[in-house]
Design a protein around this nucleic acid. Structure first.
Lengths: 222, 222
DNA sequence: CGCCAGGTGTGCACTGAGTGCCACGAGCGC
DNA sequence: GCGCTCGTGGCACTCAGTGCACACCTGGCG
């Protein structure tokens, strides 16, 4: 029944547009009563995102199952990958939906509220893990937002490629950028840093003299 | 007329709730015709955010007026401060609205779409400034998201304090955290960095020997 | 003065989403 | 058979939002 409604809805959305399709049209095509539609989907928008509720529950469970020794930023990155995997399960459907949400402002707004719930789940997890740290709550919110933005950036470029690109690789790369900015290497130092600072990132196996020379030049002491 | 509608609307929203107030109630209290309400506000939600459209235009203009030599991250942080200033212009109103949006899911969703437009404005500006850089688009989106998250974090804690805290200081601090993670000092280095790295943040006026010693210990070479 | 043009406010009827309520029918235990 | 529940459908209702037409007012022009 749910599936029948989703199928009928997308068929109509694609052939005549979202706003030009009424709920009556959908239930007529699916051959069910109008009242049943709202039994399965609390609103017309929900039929466009039929699996996000489940995915959100999966993510919450995944984060709740974390151990104390997990690296938090790594963990939220893995959690974000769950969403990507849901999209990748059904590339054709995801691409269609992407084109739909891009065109219809109402659906964009609805998608934002869905994404916001993912972001809050990540942020809540990080807030607990960062409890007691200086600026723990702030860092949790910022990292959650950055992870979501990076994930969405990679996801959308994959969707624009009609599902041809390698989604996993793109997300790995995007999340790698975030992790290198917020990873465990330097959180205590970065928090609250003054403006007049120099940031140096060095490989642990780099020659020491090379690192020192780089720092000298960055500090303007040469 | 606009002001009369906003005043009447908030009076009713506060005394009986947003969803329990119909547009007919508002126009009856304001003493105007129902049709006029929708002339000034395209939807019922818009009356809750009467000044965001103007603020968004201000931000866009501010970013468009940037020079080539402005530091982009600094610039978007300053742009975000425009929003804070709008809230701070009317602390009592902002606090009331905050309590309203926190309770009503529909208003939260609407606020998200407003925030999203700010974020897109920042991201578009950064995309242009980062054009050609490696991962320029990705970095633009992530930084915009981080700036917005930091700003909102500070803004909300100010709103929760009923406007008593120092909003400017809180936002400065929050944005400082973001800038120290994404500032100009190390973007090329951080992008795509491997996991096995050490990040050192040093004040430009710190003694050189002190910095080198810190790095030695971080690299595990002592 | 008469007339006209444009903007602003209003009334009315209509569409369509979403809800509450009740009725019907199919399964199932007693 | 009789309850019973549960999934479903139908009906009427509220309310947001829109299109249309009309009234009013204001200012310019002959």
């Amino acid at each position: 029944m749910r599936d029948a409604l989703v199928t009928a809805a997308f068929q109509l959305f694609l052939e005549r547009g979202y706003e030009q399709t009424t709920v009556d049209d959908i239930v007529a095509l699916a051959g069910v009563g109008r009242r049943s539609f709202f039994r399965y989907f609390p609103s017309k928008e929900d039929v466009v995102f039929p699996d996000h509720e489940r995915c959100l529950a999966d993510m919450t469970a995944f984060l709740a199952a974390s151990g104390e020794d997990d690296e938090p930023v790594q963990r939220v990155c893995d959690a974000a990958r769950l969403v990507l995997r849901m999209y990748a399960e059904n590339p054709a459907f995801s691409v269609q939906r992407y084109r739909l949400t891009k065109r219809v402002p109402g659906l964009r707004a609805y998608e934002l509220s869905v994404v916001w719930r993912y972001e809050r789940a990540l942020a809540e997890y990080l807030r607990e893990r960062f409890a007691g740290r200086r600026d723990g709550i702030l860092r949790a919110d910022v990292i959650a937002a950055a992870v979501v933005a990076a994930h969405n950036n990679a996801l959308r470029s994959w969707l624009r490629s009609d599902g041809r690109d390698d989604a996993e690789a793109a997300v790995d790369h995007a999340l790698g950028c975030v992790r290198s900015a917020f990873g465990t290497a330097a959180p205590q130092r970065i928090a609250g840093a003054a403006e007049d600072v120099v940031v140096v990132v060095a490989r642990r196996d780099a020659p020491l003299w090379r690192v020192v020379k780089e720092i000298e030049s960055q500090l303007g002491r040469n």
